[in-house]
C-alpha cells in the first residue's frame, strides 16, 4: 500500500501552474497511481494568488489538503511560498522559484515586498531554491518557467522513474515540445535528488 502524497503548487494567476499540474497528474496516472487534482478557477485568475493541489497514492479520497498536510510545496513565486508555508508538514520540503512578482499593494507603494523571503523559508523547512525564470530565459522562452519548476519538483519528490517526456508531449503544442523537455531537464538538474 503506497501512502498518499500531497503536492501543493502555488503562484500567481497566469504563471502556468495549471499546465504544470496537468502534466504532473497525467504522468502519475500513467505510472499507475490513483490521482486527484484540485484547482480554483474564476476571480482568482485575474493576477491573484492561485493554488493547485495534486494527491497520489494507491487510493486517494480527498482532492484537497489542509494546513500541515503537504509533503511538498512548489512555489512559482517567492512570497507565495511564505503565504502557503502553513500548509506544509513540518518535515515537508519546499521548491521555490527565486522570482518576485509584486502584488497590487506593492505596485502602488502601499506595502513593501517582504525582505529575504527565501532566507526565512530556508530556516523553517528543507528548501530547494532555483531561478526558474533565468533558466527558462536561457533556453529561449520565459514562459517555460513552469516546466522548469515541474522538473525540479519531480527530482525533489523522487519521481524520476516516470516517462515525463511523454506526459509533456501529450499536453503541449508540437512546436513547444522541445523547449519544454529541455526546460524540464534543466529544472531537474537545478535541484538535488530527494533522500530516500
Amino acid at each position: 500500500m503506497r501512502e498518499t502524497k500531497s503536492i501543493l503548487l502555488v503562484g500567481v494567476g497566469g504563471q502556468g501552474t495549471i499546465l504544470a499540474s496537468k502534466i504532473l497528474s497525467d504522468g502519475l496516472v500513467e505510472a499507475g497511481y490513483d490521482v486527484k487534482m484540485s484547482e480554483i478557477h474564476g476571480m482568482s485568475q485575474r493576477g491573484g494568488s492561485v493554488s493547485t493541489q495534486v494527491r497520489y497514492g494507491d487510493k486517494v479520497y480527498s482532492p484537497v489538503i489542509g494546513k500541515g498536510q503537504t509533503d511538498i510545496l512548489v512555489s512559482f513565486e517567492a512570497m507565495e511560498a511564505l503565504r502557503y508555508l502553513e500548509y506544509l508538514k513540518p518535515e515537508g520540503r519546499v521548491v521555490v522559484n527565486d522570482y518576485k512578482i509584486p502584488s497590487a499593494p506593492i505596485l502602488m507603494a502601499k506595502a513593501d515586498y517582504p525582505e529575504d523571503v527565501i532566507g526565512t523559508i530556508k530556516k523553517k523547512a528543507k528548501t530547494h531554491v532555483l531561478d526558474a525564470a533565468k533558466i527558462a530565459m536561457e533556453l529561449g522562452n520565459i514562459k517555460a518557467m513552469n516546466i522548469v519548476l515541474l522538473g525540479a519538483l519531480v527530482k525533489a519528490m523522487g519521481l524520476t522513474d516516470i516517462d515525463w517526456e511523454e506526459a509533456i508531449r501529450n499536453n503541449v503544442k508540437d512546436k513547444f515540445v522541445d523547449i519544454n523537455i529541455k526546460a524540464f531537464h534543466a529544472g531537474m538538474d537545478a535541484v538535488e535528488l530527494a533522500e530516500a
Binding site: 489542509g66 497590487a104 506595502a111
Partner: peptide, 29 residues
C-alpha cells in the same frame, strides 16, 4: 477539508510550521 474536520471533531491541531505570516502582502485579483 480533512484537517478542518479532524480539528473540529477531535480538537487536535495538525502540527504546522510556525512563522510570521504578517509580512506576506495580500495579492488581490
Amino acid at each position: 477539508n480533512p484537517e478542518i474536520i479532524a480539528t473540529s471533531l477531535f480538537g487536535e491541531k495538525t502540527p504546522t510550521i510556525d512563522y510570521d505570516k504578517s509580512v506576506v502582502v495580500n495579492r488581490p485579483p
